[in-house]
Amino acid sequence: MKIAVTAKGGSLSAQTDERFGRCKYFVIVDSDTMGFTIIENPSFGAASGAGPAAAREISKHSVEVLLTGNVGVNAQQALDAVGVKVVTGIGGLTVKEAVENYLKQQ
């Protein structure tokens, strides 16, 4: 299962970013292997609609779960449309901790 985490840096040990649409990076972790890919968020500096554009970006990578701080209404609508499960409230964790916490709760 692929899990996208919003992050301030491009690694597993990076701090998570509480913003979704305007986070700096998405770290996409494969929960089976703990392998990961890093994507720079192209809507980081978007004029508007960063949330839906970010949803479009992660949907290209077959993400099933998104771990982030919070999502706005437009982003939520876009994520619902492609069936990405949203888990919020990852403030203060590293990417690795956020993924481990999530997997533990499953």
């Binding site: 978007a46 609609g49 839906p52 949803a55 876009a78 449309a81 492609v82």
Partner: peptide, 23 residues
């Protein structure tokens, strides 16, 4: 349509086209 929109008011995600009138 989504590529040309500077404001992401129309976004194509897989088999969905989402329009955000406020944007």
């Amino acid at each position: 349509c989504g590529e040309i929109c500077e404001y992401n008011a129309i976004v194509v995600i897989k088999q969905n086209v989402l329009v955000f009138p406020d944007l």
